[in-house]
Amino acid sequence: MWRDAALVAGKDIRVELRSRVATNQVLPFALLVLILFAFALDPDRGFLGQAAPGLFWVAVLFSAVLAVQRSFAIEASDHAREGLRLSGLDPAGIFLGKAAAVAAQLGVLEAVLTAGVVVLYGAHLEGALLLLGTCLAATVGLAAAGTAYGVLAASLRVRETLLPLLLLPVVAPVLLGATKAWEAGLAGHPAQGDPWLRLLAVFAVVYLALGVLAFGPLLEES
């Protein structure tokens, strides 16, 4: 299972590095969302600094939907899905590999967005350990849930519209937990963020487990 996961993750990341869709489209999109928030909320009145954690994670969430869509779009052409299905790889391994690839992309995206939040919204990064831990747990959770629902919607003609509807309510706890943890971290009370960090970790573990179980049947059927 782990060897298969590494294979699939390596493949997805290589495809991403060569096609640069994430760097050329998803990353600029996320930055654009940050800038649009700045237009919507008057930057001079201090709203942006207060709302920075929420806006950051909303931007990550939207980008995660795009990243998941991209992750399954690369297999939509040339019967690559069938190839993957018939490859004899363990479905759980495929799931973990794809989730890892999505998580890696989201990690890069979050690093850039963090810089964006600091520069554009004037946020001060305190409690860096909590912020980092939150990013890690939230990213794994988003990638796991995203990949599980991604394969659910992947073979549908209407996946572009259906995936956000299915995925966003499911990852709403991630948005809540990550925002609260970041609020605590940025405000300099890292202790208040710990329960939220636990919630994020449990979410990640639960969806990783569910994905390992459900990915096989879903891949077979789609």
Binding site: L152, A153, S155, L156, R157, V158, L162, L165, L166, P169, A214, P217, L218, E221, S222
Partner: peptide, 23 residues
């Protein structure tokens, strides 16, 4: 609502049934 939307997507009945059951 998402579940109902998923059900409404036209596809092979067996596939649709499994997919919506998981959802």
């Amino acid at each position: 609502l998402g579940y109902l939307a998923l059900r409404r997507v036209p596809s092979d009945p067996g596939t649709r049934a499994k997919r919506s059951a998981v959802a």
